[in-house]
Structures are given as C-alpha cells and as structure tokens.
Design a protein around this nucleic acid. Structure first.
Lengths: 196, 196
DNA sequence: CTTTTCCGCTAACGACCGTTAGTTTTATAT
DNA sequence: ATATAAAACTAACGGTCGTTAGCGGAAAAG
C-alpha cells in the first residue's frame, strides 16, 4: 500500500493533475484511461477518487489554471505604459515561455478543452474569446498609432497563438536549438512581420 | 432500408470517410463512435463494415490523402525555377488554400494522426518529417542567397505550418473576413517576417 | 496508547466501445 | 423473370470505460 508521495508544496491532487497533464498531452484526453493515470501515479484507479471527483474535473483544473495565468498576465500588460508593438512582443514572449516551461499543461489546455463539459466549456470558450479580443485590441491600437502594418488584427492574433503552439514539435524534436534561440527566432519573424 | 446515396464521382466508402472527417474534426477521433458515424451516414453501425475494414482504416485514408497531396505539391514546387522566397510563398499559399477548402480532412490529418497504428503511424511520421526537412531546405537556400533573414529554418517552418492550422478558428468564427483576405493577411505577415 | 481521519485496496456496476456472424432486402445482370 | 451480387439489417460478442461501495491499514491528533 504505497501512498502517493507528497512534498510540502504540492498536494496529492496536484500530483495527480500533473501526471494527468503529461498523459493527456501524450495520448489525448479521451485516449487516456483512469487506470493508466493510476498506474502513472502508482496507485489503483479507484484510489484516485479520494482526491478528485471525476476525470473531467482534472481537465478543467488544467484548463483554468492555464487560462487564469494568461488572463492575469494580459491584465498586467494592458496597464503598462509602453507602445502597442512592445506590448505585442511581451505577450508573444510570455506565450513562448509558458509553452517552453509549462509545456504539458498549456498544450493540453490548448488542444483538449473541447472535452470540457458545460458549464465549464462555455466558461472556457468565453475566456478564450475575451482574451483574443483584448489581444486584437492592442494590435488595433498599434495600427492606429502607425507602429503596425494595417492588417486584420484577429488574423494576426490567430497566427501568433497558433505558431506558438508549434513549440510542441520543438519539444519532441531531437536536434533542438536552445529555448532562448527559439524565442528570439519566433519573435524576429513574427514581430518583424507586423512592424510597419 | 435506406441505402447510402452515391453519385458517380464518389463511392459509398468516400461518403463514409468524408462524414467521418467531419465528425473527427468536430469531436476528435477517439470521441467519435462508429455508431455516431453510422447515424450521420444514415445507416446501422454494422453496415459500415461492408465498406471499410476498421475505424483506423478511415483515419489512415484521411491522413494519407492529405499527406500525399502535400507531398506531390512539394515535388512540383521544388522543380520550379523561381527564387526561394517565392517558393516559400507558394507553399504557404497552398497550405492556406488547402486549409480553407479541404478543412475537415486537413485538420483531422494534422490533429489526429497520433491515433494511427503502426505501420501507418511510422510511415506518416516519416513523411511528415521529410516534408518539413524539404521545406526547411528551401528556406536555407533563401538564406544562402540573401533573400531571407538569417533565422533558424526549422523554426520558420514550424511557425508557418502551425499558423496555418489556426485557420480552424477562422472557420468557427462568426465575423469572418473573406478567405482571400485571410490568405493575403497571413502571407503579408509571415513572408514579410522572413524577408531580409 | 487510543481515537479519528485519511487514503489505499478489491470487487463490481452499468454503459458503451469496435467488431463479427448470420440473415434479409435491394439492385444489377442475364 | 430469375439468379447473383451488393448492401442493408438484427443480435450479440468480449473488452474497456468511468465510477461507486465497502473494507482495512497507516498516519495524525488527542
């Protein structure tokens, strides 16, 4: 009867969620069974339910952790007193860093949110939509200020967000450039692509 | 006993595959059951097996249809006698158009290939890797020729391919710009981002 | 040391999954 | 009109799924 090991910064639930994120990333939410998750945690499937209510709950913890991080970062950026193009660059860099260092959770939130169930699903979709609108609004300001090319702002947002999710391929590739280099390359291509 | 309707250009199998692509795109491969697919086709689940061998077969038909289209397009681009940056732009435009007009299949091939089983899985991964290498090689030539900024070519490929897959959001959004406008915006941002 | 709380276990449930066997109906060819 | 082939049906298989009930041992609190 080997208990789930805990340190003082993470509860047993945290550990389950974290292992789940790793499996969901690797195989997808639907293709990951509670029995597999239990194996990864080192426990029987039924024991998981002492710490979580359902499989869905795990997914929604992951998704909202990520969404909240991005949302509160957006708020802090909006308050900064810098030009629009600098804000865009900062947002982009934040996305890249999150994808580099909180890979599993961010990736799962991005790809598996469809399997959330209401009311969490609608809630998540709303947050997502709101986030993108606020991102686009910053780009619009940059266009109005003549810093950014006159392009369709929602399209620019879409390009940046999805390009970042491609870091998944980088993680899985063997001959990697460093994370820092990756960041600089991405920023160079995309921010230059926007700049007037 | 209502038969699957066929016209002279598509077999019953084609129709099943096409409906499957639509469902796989909407809900994911694992989350789509053969009974749901049968419903969509207007038939009982067991009847599907008069036309296909397995659920996996449907996925691999979708994935290889798409992969082969991209691969043979790559071949024709490589033979053209134009500058590297023009080749890159043409490849990008092809990806955008495919994503606009063969949305369901291309999206499924992109997101659900993980659920292929060997030998198809390895085969698909190889094709994918090869395709990206050849794409990167074109960019490298552009860098050597001084047409393209000196950036990491695999990263540039990754950005473009993933940015294109963001067209999914465009499809689902309500207030759309036209497909043509979307294409021009994407090309503007990304090709300008690469150009020296 | 005793009590209580936490957390693991085994066993099993009903639901759904992909798929097969065998039969009947519909369309096609003679 | 009849024979053949194509494609639908019903029924059911073994397996896996998420989850619950109930029980026993280990850790924490007194």
């Amino acid at each position: 009867m080997a208990r789930i090991k805990v340190d003082e910064h993470s509860s047993r639930k945290d550990i389950i969620v974290s292992k789940a994120a790793s499996l969901f990333r690797e195989k997808g939410y639907k293709a990951t069974s509670m029995r597999e998750l239990a194996d990864a945690v080192g426990v029987e499937a039924a024991s998981l339910y002492n710490h979580i209510h359902s499989k869905t709950e795990i997914l929604h913890v992951i998704c909202f952790n990520v969404a909240n991080r991005f949302m509160s970062h957006m708020e802090s950026i909006e308050l900064e007193n810098v030009s629009a193009i600098v804000k865009v660059e900062k947002l982009l860099r934040f996305h890249i860093k999150e994808m580099l260092h909180q890979y599993e959770e961010v990736y799962v939130s991005d790809r598996e949110w469809k399997h959330l169930t209401d009311p969490y699903l609608s809630n998540f979709q709303n947050q997502r939509r709101t986030y993108r609108k606020r991102f686009a609004a910053i780009i619009e300001k940059g266009i109005a200020a003549g810093e950014i090319k006159s392009i369709d702002a929602p399209t620019a947002v879409l390009i940046m967000l999805h390009a970042v999710s491609g870091i998944e391929s980088w993680h899985r590739s063997t001959a990697k450039i460093s994370g820092k280099e990756l960041e600089e390359n991405m920023v160079t291509i995309m921010v230059d692509g926007l700049r007037k």
